[in-house]
Amino acid sequence: MTDLREKLTDWDPKATTYKPVIYLFAVAAATAVALSIGFLGTITWQTVGWFISVSMILLGMQKLRDIESFTTMFLNYDVVARKWVPYAYIYPWVETGAGILMTGMLLKWLSAPAALIVSTIGAWSVFKAVYLDRRELKCACVGGGSNVPLGFVSLTENLAMMGMSIVMLLQIVV
């Protein structure tokens, strides 16, 4: 079937693509808008928070779908996982769990620091691998086996998670 698809179209299973990330973020955005209009009657700053938290859930689920493949890719660039392999197995659970708690605005004292820790490590890991070491790697952000390049999208994902974590931590203090 794959051979036929390649012959009849220009489809290349090894080609770099951003489609999985685009689709995932589109679903997260639509969900955030639906939550905002359904619960708040309008689009507010909470919509952005829901977009980030729902994205975290969806991205985490993609990683958990095939955790072995994810960890293999993740070990190529994550600075903590390269030193302590169990972190690669913990990361998707933290991302998914923090996203669920953040969507419900529950246990901020737990979800915000957890997300801040993994996203800060993730942002540094991506920045180091792509921009300092100049390595061309595939991103494990949508799970293993994807052809999404590691770089701007991965860094932005981690920075958004960091930002949301900081905002939630500030809500606890204020």
Rank of each mutant, 00 (worst) to 15 (best):
E68N: 13
K63Y: 01
A81E: 02
G99V: 06
P113G: 02
I67S: 10
V94S: 07
L107D: 01
V85N: 12
L64P: 10
M102V: 01
T103M: 11
R82D: 02
K83M: 15
F127M: 07
K128Q: 13
A129V: 11
K108E: 12
L64A: 12
A123W: 04
W84G: 06
A115V: 03
I100V: 12
V126L: 11
L64K: 14
N76E: 15
L116Y: 04
S69A: 12
G104N: 11
G97A: 08
L107C: 05
F74I: 05
Y91R: 05
L101Q: 00
S125V: 06
R65K: 15
G99D: 01
G122P: 02
W124F: 13
Y91T: 04
S111W: 00
N76R: 15
F70V: 04
Y91A: 09
K108P: 03
S69W: 01
W93C: 07
F74E: 05
M105D: 14
I100T: 03
L75A: 15
A88W: 00
V85Q: 15
I90S: 09
W124K: 14
I67L: 13
Y89E: 10
V80W: 08
V94F: 02
Y91L: 11
M102E: 00
V94P: 03
R82I: 04
G97R: 03
V126R: 01
S125G: 09
K108W: 04
V130P: 00
Q62H: 14
Y77A: 01
A112Y: 00
V126F: 09
W109C: 11
I90M: 14
T96M: 13
P86K: 13
K63W: 02
L64M: 13
A115H: 04
S125A: 15
T72F: 08
Y87T: 03
L101K: 00
Y87P: 03
I100P: 04
V79R: 06
V94K: 05
W93T: 06
V126D: 01
Y77W: 09
R65W: 10
I67T: 13
R65E: 06
V130G: 04
T103N: 11
R65D: 08
V118W: 00
R82N: 02
E68V: 05
M61E: 12
G104R: 11
P86W: 07
T96K: 13
S69G: 05
M105P: 02
V80G: 05
K63G: 03
T96N: 11
L107Q: 07
T72L: 09
F74S: 03
M102D: 00
V85Y: 15
A112D: 01
F127A: 09
K108Q: 14
R65Y: 09
D78V: 07
V80C: 10
G97L: 08
R82E: 05
L116S: 06
S69D: 07
D66Q: 15
A112S: 12
M102N: 01
L64T: 10
L116W: 07
Q62K: 10
R82F: 02
A81I: 02
Q62E: 11
I90P: 05
K128N: 13
S69K: 06
K83T: 10
Q62L: 12
I90A: 14
L116V: 11
M73C: 10
R65I: 07
L106S: 14
Y87L: 06
M105C: 05
M73H: 10
I121E: 02
S125F: 07
Y91N: 09
A123R: 01
K128C: 08
S111H: 01
A115E: 04
W84I: 14
